[in-house]
Design a protein around this nucleic acid. Structure first.
Lengths: 148, 148
DNA sequence: TTTACTGCAAAGGGTTTGCATGAGG
DNA sequence: CCTCATGCAAACCCTTTGCAGTAAA
C-alpha cells in the first residue's frame, strides 16, 4: 500500500492526515507481524524523533474507530491487526511471533456464516488465534519471549 | 463439578489445596461467563473477607500453568476460560458478556485439524472470539460496558 | 481562522512482586 | 518440620488524560 493510498483511506474515513499519522498507519497497515505499540514506535522514531507513545496510542484509536485496524489484547500488551479478513493467527508461545496462517480462511468464513445464520448474535468481527509453537521454535528449548 | 472433584483435580496437578484455592477454582471452573479477577473476587469474598486480589492472581497463574484454565486478555482486563474444548466465544461489545456459542464446535475442530495437518505449527490451544452484539443488546441503544 | 493533532508530563489502573506470617502435607 | 500459600503494601508498566503550542483544512 502506497503512502498516497493510505492518505486517501484516512481522508475517506474523515481522519485528518498528518505526517505522524501517515507514518504510524503505514507501519501498521503495511505489516503482517501484528506489531505492538513499542514496535510501531521503533519503526517511526527515526523519521519522527520527537514522537511520543501518546501520539501512537491516539492514532491507533482513530484507526480502530474507523474500522481500519483491530486491537489484539495479549497478556502483557496489545498488538495491532491490519488484516480484517477472516483468518487464523498463529501465536508462538516461545518466540512471541504472531503470523497469519496461509490456510483456514474458508473454514473461518464457514464458522462465521454458522454464527450469523444459526444464532441471534450480530457479528462485527472475529479473532481466531491458535496458540502453540512455530516450526522454528518447536525443536528448540529456550524461551525467548512468553506472550500467551 | 463438586468441591471434592475440584480438590482431586488440583492434587492430581501437584497443586497444594487450600480453602482459598478451592473457592477460587470453584468460581472459575463452575462458571461459563468467563469471569474477570474482580468478578471472582466478588464471588469469594463473602466466604474469605480477608482474601486479596494477589491471592486470586496467584491462584489463576497456578491453574493456568496446570492447564486447567486459560487467560483471555481483553483491552481493559483479562477474563478466564474454563472450557478448554474447541468452541466459539461470543463477545458483546455493548454489555460486555462473553458466552460460549451453542454451535460451531465441529467447525473449530475442523479448523484445528487443518492447522495441525497442513502447517508445521504445533497447536497448544485456541481462542475463537466473535465480537458483536448479543441478541439482547442488538435492539437497544445505550452502551453498558465496552470490552472490545 | 477554526479545528483538532502533537508532544510533554502526570495520573490511572490492572497486575506483579517482596516479605513476614501462617497453613498444608 | 519443611515447604509454600496467604495477606499486605508497594512497585511496575502499559495506557490514558490534560494542557499548551502548533499544524491541517
Amino acid at each position: 500500500m502506497t503512502r498516497q493510498e493510505i492518505a486517501l483511506l484516512l481522508r475517506q474515513g474523515g481522519i485528518r492526515v498528518t505526517p505522524q499519522r501517515l507514518a504510524i498507519s503505514e507501519a501498521v497497515l503495511n505489516s503482517s507481524d501484528h506489531p505492538s505499540v513499542q514496535q510501531i514506535y521503533e519503526r517511526v522514531k527515526d523519521h519522527f524523533p520527537s514522537m511520543t507513545l501518546a501520539t501512537i496510542y491516539s492514532t491507533l484509536d482513530v484507526l480502530e474507530n474507523s474500522g481500519l485496524i483491530q486491537e489484539l489484547p495479549f497478556p502483557q500488551f496489545s498488538r495491532y491487526e491490519s488484516n480484517l479478513e477472516p483468518h487464523v493467527n498463529l501465536v508462538c508461545v516461545k518466540c512471541g511471533t504472531v503470523t497469519d496462517a496461509y490456510i483456514g480462511h474458508d473454514s473461518v468464513v464457514t464458522l462465521k456464516n454458522q454464527i450469523v445464520g444459526e444464532t441471534r448474535f450480530k457479528v462485527g468481527w472475529q479473532r481466531v488465534d491458535f496458540h502453540g509453537w512455530c516450526s522454528l521454535c518447536a525443536n528448540k528449548g529456550t524461551d525467548v519471549a512468553r506472550v500467551s
